[in-house]
């Protein structure tokens, strides 16, 4: 069953949204977001096609992580609309947003965000478990893809930074989400590992045809994407 089919009843407005969005996977319309008195995003407009790999480059505090959080349904904008695959997720309830994150999004974080008390294999399996599946075959397949089959029973603290990020990449992809959001995925890695990880991400997203938003403050990392954007003072260039 298609995700949207059982969540929101099909209505005229939704049909209209699908018609105007065309092949866009992600559409941001005039997004504004503030933290306290500080306006972090000032009317962002952005369209990302299905299967497109884009990077958003900016310095610290420019609003790039906030943008990612909004697209990933982890936060809500004050103004504007976020349309994902034809659905306006800004009107979602908390439960619908949770389901959206569970089904449609894969996150890759700068500090890996692995669960510390469970094994590599269990970390990778977590999105499947949350989706009600215990398909070990898929888990093993993803572990192989990132070359960690020998460390599947290890705990995160027993892995190097690069290995931990490979676990995080597998976890982001295992439940076959349509969108991958990567927040400075190499920010805490050395340059050699950084390169390997970026190549792995690029290879995997190309193989699986995912729509990717990668935020970074490094130009050479941003170059892995098909389209590069810059964000400064809450505005995209």
């Amino acid at each position: 069953m298609h995700f949207s089919a059982h969540l929101v009843p099909i209505n005229i407005r939704k049909c209209f949204e699908i018609l105007i969005s065309g092949t866009h996977m992600i559409e941001l319309e005039n997004i504004e977001k503030s933290y306290g008195n500080t306006k972090v995003l000032k009317g962002i407009n952005l369209e990302i096609n299905k299967g497109e790999f884009i990077s958003v480059m900016g310095s610290s505090g420019s609003g790039k992580s906030t943008l990612l959080n909004l697209v990933g349904g982890m936060d809500r904008p004050e103004r504007g609309r976020i349309i994902i695959d034809g659905e306006n997720i800004t009107s979602y309830t908390d439960e619908e947003l949770t389901l959206y994150r569970r089904k449609k999004v894969g996150f890759i974080f700068q500090f890996f965000n692995l669960l510390p008390n469970i094994t590599v294999f269990e970390n990778i399996m977590m999105p499947l478990l949350l989706n009600g599946s215990e398909d070990k075959k898929t888990g093993l397949e993803y572990i192989k893809r990132v070359g960690l089959e020998e460390k599947q029973n290890a705990y995160p603290y027993q892995l190097s930074g690069g290995e931990q990020q490979r676990v995080a990449i597998s976890r982001a992809l295992i439940h076959n989400p349509e969108i991958i959001l990567a927040d400075e995925p190499t920010g805490s890695l050395d340059s050699e590992t950084e390169k390997k990880i970026m190549e792995l991400i690029k290879q995997l997203v190309e193989e699986t045809e995912k729509t990717v938003i990668l935020v970074t403050h490094e130009h050479y990392i941003a170059e892995y994407a098909g389209r590069m954007l810059r964000i400064k003072d809450g505005i995209i260039f």
Binding site: G72, L99, R101, N113, L115, P127, L130, N131
Partner: peptide, 11 residues
């Protein structure tokens, strides 16, 4: 908990 919530665990 934040990680689990970001992965789609509901309240």
């Amino acid at each position: 908990i934040g990680i689990l919530r970001s992965l789609g665990a509901d309240k």
